Amino acid sequence: MFYRDFYTGLVRAAAIGLGTFGATACSVAQQDSFTLITELPPGFSIKGEASYVPRTGESCTVPSRQGKNHPGKKFFKQDLNNKAQTAHFTVPLISDEGGCPLVLKSFGYEVDAKYGPARLSIGRDYTGISFEDKATNTSKITPPDTLQKDCQWLFRTVGPKNNISKILSCKAVAAPASPEAIQRDELSGKSLTVVFSLAQEELPYMGDTWIKFPEGWKRCLGKSIEDPYGFCNGNTTKFKPFKMPDGRDCTVYPNCTE
């Protein structure tokens, strides 16, 4: 009986020890990363690139790329969706690929948005987040929970048929007392949300090429209908038609007809 009870006790102790070790290992793994939550408007897709540099004080360099292996980078992707969507990425704060201790330096976004049915009717812009070492002073800087990125369509005409083309512009919205770079140590095991929004109003890509009327924007004629620049130069009476991304011939944007 004694030996059986003793053996049972050993098994239970080992099980408890393994459970404690597993929980500790899981906790350590969580502290080595953070969750990046990205909210996207309808029609958007993103590619993310986390870039790493040698930890402060290290004399090693980021190992060179070998085939598809990028020791200093990690890639993320969220495909285009016609509905609003939310992406969750687990981003490591440290890496030791190639034997060099690395830390997260930046997370870059490639943002794509579709504005028409054609395959190439896509606007693209780039934005990102910077990270830095913990401040040397004793004051603790609390990282923001949410970052805002405001996007807007800028329209123009291109080619001899004056086809409408759009350019996507995404800019960071600076919050009061928000740091330019986030201290990576303060993000361990936490979540950071990046919200992309799309402005309702579209604006001309280049100044003095369109004039706004109550019914919409009209494209200035310029020197002639073939003038690729078509600056207004004070002429507010002569305009030229253009072709919308869906193929319609129009005279006012975005309503098409006056």
Rank of each mutant, 00 (worst) to 15 (best):
I122Q: 15
F21K: 03
N255I: 06
D150C: 07
F2T: 02
D227L: 02
T257S: 11
L120T: 02
L10R: 10
Q148K: 04
K149S: 03
E258A: 08
T127L: 09
N69Y: 11
N162G: 00
T146L: 13
T38D: 06
I37W: 00
T138V: 12
P63V: 07
C26A: 14
K161D: 11
S169Q: 09
G57S: 07
P160Y: 10
V62D: 03
P179Q: 09
S95T: 11
A29M: 12
G207S: 09
T24D: 05
P245K: 09
K74E: 11
P143F: 05
E202Q: 15
T8Y: 08
D125F: 05
F196A: 05
V11T: 06
T136H: 11
E110M: 10
T127E: 02
K223I: 01
Y205R: 14
N233L: 08
T193Q: 11
Y109M: 07
K243E: 04
D112H: 13
K190M: 14
A14T: 04
S165R: 14
K166G: 00
Q66V: 08
K83T: 06
Q30N: 08
P179G: 13
G99C: 12
K105S: 14
I16T: 07
Q200V: 04
R219S: 00
D112G: 07
W217M: 01
K218Y: 00
H70F: 15
T86D: 15
R184L: 14
P214A: 04
L221S: 03
G22D: 08
F239C: 05
H88D: 13
K238T: 00
A13K: 07
S64C: 03
V252L: 02
I164A: 14
S165A: 09
L147V: 11
A174K: 15
S191F: 04
G116S: 03
Q148M: 06
T38W: 12
Q183C: 03
F34E: 04
T237M: 05
A23G: 10
E202R: 01
N255W: 08
T257R: 12
W210L: 03
A174I: 10
S33V: 05
F75V: 09
G159H: 12
P160A: 12
S33G: 13
V91E: 07
N255G: 10
T61R: 13
R12I: 06
N69F: 09
N163K: 13
N233S: 13
Q78V: 13
W210T: 02
E215R: 00
K212N: 08
Y253C: 02
K134E: 12
